[in-house]
Design a protein around this nucleic acid. Structure first.
Lengths: 193, 193
DNA sequence: CACTGCATGTAACCTGTTACATGATTTC
DNA sequence: GAAATCATGTAACAGGTTACATGCAGTG
């Protein structure tokens, strides 16, 4: 139940369900997306378990808010989760299945376009993370190597995203090229096989 | 509903639920794992939709089997799915959340060990795929560049897995080194912060 | 007064996991 | 005759998604 632990980690700094949703949509989304309905539901469950505590708070604008934070028991639970070692689990990537079955399209140009679209997608994700890193470097002179505490680990997740998206974008560009090379030359039939 | 389409693609070659489970555990597992119970349940739904057809078949050993194959309507559905372009969707990787919250362990040596464990995990996955590729090369002299038809696309999924696992394993090795360098030297207090 | 942003929640549904249940045939 | 392998299915539950419902406060 990783959502539980992402919330436990996030709530070391107190936040409302609404604020959590925003953090999910910006940072956590990259490795554990969650919908608002699921966040509120899970918060309730974690509170009955005694892992987070909620309290009523006033709001600068808008209705009253309910602010949660991780309890001592919640923190102990989070530490156990971290101490058990990496939870790697399975990948679930529909696009890889699509690549595997691309042959069923029986259309080498469409396959090449498919790989080109994959390249745009991952190049865009890479550019997004590169922008985040560039901003960080200009905002904080200690950025890559002087980072301490929680920032050091946050930066690690950034370099992982960078490495992964870079590898996939390069793969897509390379394979798009190989697919291009297989295309029938002009003047011959457009279909393969 | 990607499981539907993975089954549609797999059943271009007729197979029983049991055989499909084996293919999931060897090949499809790398991008779309599925349990036996889910496979049988989905097969029933796809059959009512008219996308696959099942027929009774004799079995060399063991009880009677039910062999399914993709129908013309199922193939049309599969092609529509491929033609709509890559479905990239979200990543859900608990270990990245763990890295982000590693600071809560407040133990730099444990964090270094965590990264070392990640490195072993991904190095092992990489080695597994490298072995698959090596076997393919020795079995088929056309292997990397002369591959045609469905094999060309199957090889693409292999090079993707190779690129991705290589990138992650290299990241883990590099960051393990950086974490090592931050360790307090012998004789000083063992805890960071 | 309409719209936007803040804020919290519920209901129905779909997908995926775990556990259980059954039975045939072959090999030791 | 016990164990392994072939083979198919169901039930209960957990986790995640989509859609809906409600209401406050400030801005134009």
């Amino acid at each position: 139940m990783s959502l539980d632990h992402v919330l436990l980690g996030a709530l070391r700094e107190p936040a409302s369900g609404y604020e959590l949703k925003q953090r999910f949509d910006t940072v956590f989304r990259h490795f554990w997306p969650a919908e608002q309905s699921q966040i509120y539901r899970t918060l309730q469950r974690l509170e009955s378990a005694g892992w987070v505590a909620g309290r009523q708070a006033a709001s600068a604008r808008g209705p009253r808010r309910r602010v949660y934070s991780t309890t001592a028991r919640g923190l102990a639970q989070l530490r156990r989760w971290l101490a058990q070692g990496p939870i790697v689990g399975d990948d679930r990537h529909a696009f890889v299945a699509q690549v595997l079955f691309l042959h069923e399209l029986d259309d080498a140009a469409a396959a090449r376009d498919f790989l080109a679209a994959l390249h745009s997608e991952f190049a865009a994700r890479l550019a997004e993370l590169e922008a985040v890193e560039a901003r960080w470097r200009t905002d904080d002179p200690r950025c890559p190597d002087g980072l301490a505490g929680a920032d050091f680990y946050a930066h690690l997740t950034l370099t992982l995203g960078l490495a992964k998206y870079r590898a996939i974008a390069e793969w897509a560009a390379r394979e798009r090229g190989r697919a291009e090379a297989r295309l029938p030359t002009r003047g011959t039939r457009a279909r393969t096989r």
